[in-house]
Amino acid sequence: MCYFDHQLWRCGYWRWGNFREQCPKEYRTGETCGLKLIYNTYLEPGVCKTCETVSKKQRRMSKMMEDVDRWTCEGNRRATIEKTQQEIGVLQVQIGELCRDHEVRKNACSY
């Protein structure tokens, strides 16, 4: 039962922070017993790194979709449209994985 800081973002994502206090069960200096307890929770005002990454990928995907629509109206850019649509598919998969990982971490018990 060693104590650690706990960081919590607005979106619900959390992570363990720095080691703060050693419990009486562990007698070796610098070692922890393996059981983590919260010493102090720090509320972070912004969004987590995962949310920032998802937001960037969504903006990029939105721009690509606008480009595809524009190129479709212009015509004679079939290869560019196909390549961009493949990249959009890859981005959708990446966004899905990031959102799934974010939800798993958000719903995991931190204490």
Rank of each mutant, 00 (worst) to 15 (best):
G12Q: 04
G34Y: 00
C11P: 00
N76R: 10
R100F: 06
Y111D: 11
E31F: 13
G17F: 05
H6M: 14
N107P: 04
R15A: 12
T41Q: 07
L35K: 14
R105C: 11
G12A: 08
E21V: 04
T84C: 07
R60S: 06
D69R: 15
D5C: 08
F4T: 04
Q7Y: 15
Y111P: 08
E66P: 06
Y42A: 12
I88H: 06
R77Q: 11
K25H: 11
G30P: 03
V68F: 08
I38E: 03
Y3W: 12
W9S: 00
T84D: 04
L98C: 04
C109R: 12
S62Y: 14
C73G: 13
N76C: 09
R70G: 03
C99M: 12
R77H: 11
Q58K: 11
R59Y: 11
D69L: 14
L91Y: 07
G75K: 01
G30F: 04
Q58L: 11
G17P: 05
I88F: 03
R15M: 12
R15E: 15
M61Y: 01
K25I: 11
S110N: 13
Q58D: 08
G12P: 07
H102M: 03
A79K: 06
E74K: 13
W16A: 03
T50C: 02
Q22I: 00
D101E: 13
N107D: 07
N76M: 08
L35H: 14
S110F: 13
N76V: 09
E66S: 15
L91P: 02
S110D: 13
V68H: 06
G96R: 01
L35Y: 11
N18F: 10
E31V: 10
K106T: 09
W71I: 04
L8P: 03
E44W: 01
E52M: 01
L98W: 04
R100I: 02
E66N: 15
Y42L: 12
K56P: 01
V47T: 09
C99R: 06
G34V: 05
L91R: 03
K57E: 00
N18H: 11
Y111K: 09
K57N: 04
D69Q: 15
C33E: 02
T84N: 00
R60C: 01
